[in-house]
Computed example of a mutant assay.
Amino acid sequence: MDAPTLATARLVLRPWRAADRNGLWRMQSDPRTMEFLMPVPDRVASDRVADRAEDHFARHGFGLWVAEAPGVTDFAGYCGLVHVPYAEHFTPAVEIGWRFDPAFWGRGYATEAARAALAFGFGRLSLAEIVAITVPANARSRALMERLGMTRDRDGDFDLPSTPTGHPLRRQVLYRLKAGGSFSRPRPPA
């Protein structure tokens, strides 16, 4: 199935290209990007992240899009929707996620890309709900979730199964947004 391309006022959310793996590794090898995420130890592991993103598109027709800012950069990061790959009290579910290169933080790209992904999820995919997760200490991502209109499920905290027991990144908070929620739709490109 062909991966769709989404456009916002400043971004193109597009399928992955071979050259994106360089930007992905640069981003994932930056400790600022990975502060609240399990480390990606080497280029091989980083390429597996891209492989999983491409595979999700092939299987489901949506996934984590590369965020390109035309005239600025071919790879600012990624943002999109994925099926949660583990069993938990809120699954099955589709999660919104993002990861941006620190060189492009503070420009509103993550918010703009996330709004486009939500619009796609609730519009084209007719999802009833989209979730987001992060560690409790990740104030930047939690603030973005709240800007998107997501609300924290106070009873939804859980331990991420892929993270070792006792690891400080194991505990996660859960945010939810129902279809018809109050997120702002992205502005179309000029």
Score class of each variant (00 low, 15 high):
Y78D: 06
A69M: 09
E95T: 12
S126Q: 14
R140S: 08
V131N: 06
R185Q: 12
N22D: 15
K178R: 13
R99Q: 07
L160Q: 15
R59H: 14
A7N: 12
L11T: 10
S126L: 08
M145T: 04
H83T: 15
P39G: 01
E54H: 05
E146D: 00
D155V: 05
P39R: 04
R176Y: 09
D20C: 05
G77M: 05
E95S: 11
D51P: 04
S46Y: 06
V66S: 12
A119V: 05
M150Y: 01
H167Y: 04
V82R: 13
R21I: 07
E146I: 10
L144Y: 02
R170M: 07
T165V: 14
R142K: 06
E88S: 14
A143S: 11
T163D: 00
A50E: 07
T165P: 03
H56G: 11
R52P: 02
R142S: 03
A114W: 02
A137D: 13
E54W: 02
V82T: 15
A113R: 01
L11S: 11
V66E: 10
G180P: 07
R99P: 02
L144P: 00
F90Y: 15
V94H: 11
A69E: 09
A19Y: 06
A139E: 09
Q172F: 01
W65Q: 10
